[in-house]
Amino acid sequence: MLILHCPYCGIDAEETELHAGGEAHLTRFGPGSSDDDFEGYLFMRENPRGVHFERWRHANGCGKWFHAARCTNTLEVFGTYSAQTTEPPEEIRKILAKKRPGWTWRDLK
């Protein structure tokens, strides 16, 4: 059972209270953007073996969206963090540097 800590209501919510929201930190391209950018935004997703960043919603709870850093290989949860950010915060990066030295994800490392 996947358990994620909701950074908004402080509850360690289990999977059935949550709703998965796909990949995190996407840059949205809308009207006026190039076809390549729009296609990338719509269809191109990471499929890493290892460190991954996801969006989750505490649907049966406080209703807030948040981010989670997880490992697709071991299902380890590195941590969760606020949705009001465009990249993983420093404390998550520190944990990753310790637990998965040399990790990469998109252009992050």
Binding site: C9, I11, T16, E17, N60, G61, C62
Partner: peptide, 10 residues
């Protein structure tokens, strides 16, 4: 207070 789900409903 706790917001959660009861079986299939919020």
């Amino acid at each position: 207070v706790r917001r959660t789900r009861f079986a299939q409903v919020a």
